[in-house]
Design a protein around this nucleic acid. Structure first.
Lengths: 132, 132
DNA sequence: GCTACGCCCTCAAGCCACTTGAGGTTCAAG
DNA sequence: CTTGAACCTCAAGTGGCTTGAGGGCGTAGC
């Protein structure tokens, strides 16, 4: 199949496929008169990459995952990638929740104490008030 | 004061100050023999920018905030920026929580069903299983 | 005067994961 | 034979900085 067909089948854009090839995530396929021709293997590989991207693994993490897939390492390897990733996701959530609390407090502080003052004096913009 | 002193006072790096100036977030200061010389106003302005960045406002949002500060628009303006930002933070948290649930489910799925199979067959890597 | 050091300057490139655009070739249909 | 879609490569843009190269200026000690 040609690159456009592969792109539709895997649900990614055509430039994204070329990008993945350029950074070594996908093997360069055969060519016919300069155009890339893919087989079923390429679709499987691309689906795997897309799946990992949907789980928000970075390109470097995916590189490691692909390596352990190719070497048919045990599943415990895969699981430890996922667990590490899960930890990172949870840390990010914790950071965002702290930020949410800070901003929410500033907004309600503005409602109760600002009383329509001018922007430079708004509590939201006062440095050191609840920011990290 | 010179740029290094300002940087320490505001808690940002020297290149960051030059970067903010280059994108128009900070006014270009006076110069003495080619070197930037700042007054107290510059420190106030930089502190405001840093505060907004700590709240994770984007540069473009900060541009808008600075504009409403300079025009001394009412505080309701500031509050609506913050409220919009708060909505974005909450959306991001919701996305990450969905992702967390997906990855956590894959990890525990691996623990219960994979039984040490090879990486290519691990449930974590099966496309369409719980991904977005 | 001379050297060493620290601070300052500008300009360019690197990070991440793509997307967008320019300018040109090949393919399939009418 | 022409048209339009799909393909090609290469370069630059996104955000918010950081890092590095290569150089100028000021001052303190010898």
């Amino acid at each position: 199949m040609r690159i456009g067909v592969l792109a539709k089948a895997a649900g990614v854009s055509v430039p994204t496929i070329r990008y993945y090839e350029s950074i070594g995530l996908l093997a360069p396929p055969a060519r016919q008169r300069g155009q890339r021709i893919y087989g079923g293997e390429a679709l499987k590989a691309l689906n795997l990459v897309r799946h990992c991207r949907e789980l928000d693994f970075s390109i470097d993490e995916i590189r490691d995952i692909l390596a352990s897939v190719q070497r048919r390492l045990p599943c415990s390897d895969t699981k430890s990638f996922a667990e590490k990733h899960l930890g990172a996701i949870r840390m990010k959530i914790a950071e965002l929740r702290a930020l949410e609390a800070t901003v929410a407090a500033l907004v309600s502080g503005c409602e109760t104490t600002c009383c329509g003052s001018a922007a430079p004096d708004c509590v939201i913009l006062q440095p050191g008030c609840g920011s990290a």
